[in-house]
Measured scan of single mutants.
Amino acid sequence: ATNIVSKVKWYNSTKNFGFIEQDNGGKDVFVHKSAVDAAGLHSLEEGQDVIFDLEEKQGKAYAVNLRIK
């Protein structure tokens, strides 16, 4: 899926990962520091509106092509 609009559930800049809620009630989506860095960001804030693409690797959903709404 591409261009999903949602909100950051939480992000831990010390552990370099977090999760984004899915508005459709699906499972929370993992977001890694590499996606945050690629977006030119230093961190994410809880409740922040984001747009991302969903990529599945080894049966897990990852946020990629992250951008701020």
Rank of each mutant, 00 (worst) to 15 (best):
A1D: 09
A1I: 13
A1C: 13
T2V: 13
T2K: 14
N3F: 06
N3S: 10
N3A: 09
N3Y: 07
N3V: 06
N3K: 07
N3T: 08
I4D: 04
I4L: 11
V5D: 06
V5N: 10
V5M: 12
V5C: 13
S6M: 06
S6E: 02
S6L: 05
S6Y: 06
K7A: 04
K7F: 07
V8P: 00
K9M: 03
W10S: 03
W10G: 01
W10T: 02
W10C: 08
W10A: 01
Y11P: 01
N12E: 06
N12V: 06
N12I: 06
N12S: 14
S13Y: 11
T14R: 13
K15D: 04
N16D: 05
N16G: 15
F17L: 03
F17G: 02
G18S: 00
G18V: 02
G18P: 01
G18L: 03
F19K: 02
F19G: 01
F19V: 04
E21W: 15
E21G: 13
E21D: 08
E21Q: 14
Q22A: 15
Q22P: 14
Q22D: 12
Q22R: 14
Q22H: 14
Q22Y: 15
D23I: 15
D23L: 15
D23E: 14
D23S: 15
N24Q: 11
N24R: 11
N24V: 10
N24P: 10
G25F: 09
G25I: 08
G25S: 09
G25V: 07
G25E: 08
G26Q: 12
G26P: 07
K27L: 09
K27G: 10
D28Y: 05
D28F: 04
V29Y: 12
V29M: 04
F30N: 00
V31R: 00
V31L: 07
V31N: 01
V31D: 00
V31P: 02
H32I: 03
H32S: 07
K33I: 07
K33Q: 11
K33S: 09
S34M: 11
S34V: 09
A35E: 10
A35F: 05
A35S: 09
V36P: 00
V36D: 00
V36Y: 02
V36N: 00
D37Y: 15
D37R: 14
D37L: 15
A38T: 08
A39Q: 03
A39C: 04
G40K: 08
G40W: 05
G40N: 09
L41K: 05
L41Y: 10
L41C: 08
H42L: 13
H42D: 13
S43T: 14
S43M: 12
S43V: 11
S43C: 14
L44V: 04
L44F: 06
L44Q: 01
E45M: 13
E45I: 14
E45C: 14
E45G: 09
E45R: 13
E46R: 15
E46V: 14
G47L: 04
G47N: 07
Q48S: 08
Q48C: 09
Q48E: 09
D49R: 13
D49N: 11
V50P: 00
V50N: 01
V50F: 03
I51M: 12
I51R: 05
I51Y: 07
I51N: 03
I51T: 10
F52P: 00
F52V: 04
F52C: 01
D53S: 04
D53M: 04
D53E: 05
L54I: 15
L54H: 03
L54C: 07
E55A: 12
E55S: 09
E55Y: 14
E56S: 11
E56K: 12
K57R: 13
K57C: 13
Q58P: 06
Q58I: 07
Q58N: 14
G59V: 00
G59L: 05
K60H: 09
K60Q: 09
K60Y: 11
K60M: 10
Y62L: 07
Y62P: 04
A63P: 03
V64T: 10
V64S: 07
N65F: 03
L66N: 00
L66D: 02
L66E: 02
L66Q: 01
R67Q: 09
R67E: 06
R67H: 07
I68Y: 07
I68V: 13
K69C: 13
K69N: 12
K69E: 11
